[in-house]
Nucleic acid binder design. Structure first.
Lengths: 155, 155
DNA sequence: GCAACTTAGGTGACGTGTCAACTATTCCCC
DNA sequence: GGGGAATAGTTGACACGTCACCTAAGTTGC
């Protein structure tokens, strides 16, 4: 690893620091608000979105993992924790004896319904109120480019 | 909490999903590369940057917390873990009997020097290679706006 | 029809992050 | 100078994430 690596130039460094800061500061705020409102975490919220968005109100573990880009192990642990709090339950899968459904409970449905409006409000307040409609489009386009690069690299 | 909340429009939703995806996918990759290269985590790296950038090679816990926007408790736990691996040590502070210095060790210095070039290369590869110089500036400006909004809200 | 392989998911150990409570010092101000 | 408030930092409990490994069920090919 010889050091022929160009360090980041001033603009890149600026962009990078700014990204790191938003990254470090945004989620904790959203998390705390969710926790205070409805006593669920951002991760719980994300899982509940996936599960409730499917008709049937149930999703396979692998599908959940792919949608959230979590690994299966993380999904499994998280589902265990959520089912301890009765937000979801596991059910076995008839089609595939190895498989498992993650099924939302009435409590889970209730939680996400109570959480969603406040969460959306918070996202709007913390992010989109800072940007004009044009800026939102630009920001999305650039973030997409980074995402595409990232996914190309992972493959 | 009446539901007079406008849901996100299509562009906002797009931006938000894209942000979430980058957020979820970028750090794990950087983390794994650091871990594989030099066996330190991104958090270790961030702490080491702060500590080695100060002359003296030492920083107060509170200063570290503010620079990284971590809470003191997190800093304290992390320093404990890092000192178990001899990357830093705690030293008591003469000026202020309550205080503590976090001091980088030769091992810590060595680790970050070995880690930095690869890490920069990874950031460049995963992020900046996706964007033109102009786009980097635009992206930074927009991220800054969000950051400013976020910080205004926290206060 | 059975051995080798792949896939779905779970588990345990351990590192990480958060919150609330605690101790020890310093500050302030009477 | 002494007593209460603020500040620096640590700790313990517990939620979260990752890795390596495990089991059980499905798949393939002979």
């Amino acid at each position: 690893m010889t050091d022929d690596t160009p360090w980041l130039d001033a603009h890149e460094q600026h962009a990078w620091r700014s990204w790191l800061a938003v990254r470090a500061e945004l989620s904790p705020v959203l998390n705390r608000e969710l926790q205070a409102d409805v006593d669920i975490s951002l991760s719980d919220f994300d899982v509940l979105v996936q599960v409730t968005e499917s008709d049937e109100g149930r999703v396979r573990v692998a599908a959940l993992a792919e949608a959230l880009r979590w690994d299966r192990s993380r999904v499994s642990h998280h589902v265990t924790r959520m089912s301890r709090r009765s937000l979801v339950v596991r059910e076995e899968c008839d089609d595939d004896g190895r498989g498992a459904w993650v099924v939302v409970t009435p409590e889970g449905r209730d939680a996400i319904e109570r959480a969603a409006p406040g969460h959306v409000r918070a996202v709007r307040r913390l992010v989109f109120d800072a940007l004009s409609p044009d800026e939102v489009r630009t920001w999305a386009a650039l973030t997409d480019k980074v995402l595409a690069r990232l996914r190309a690299d992972e493959a």
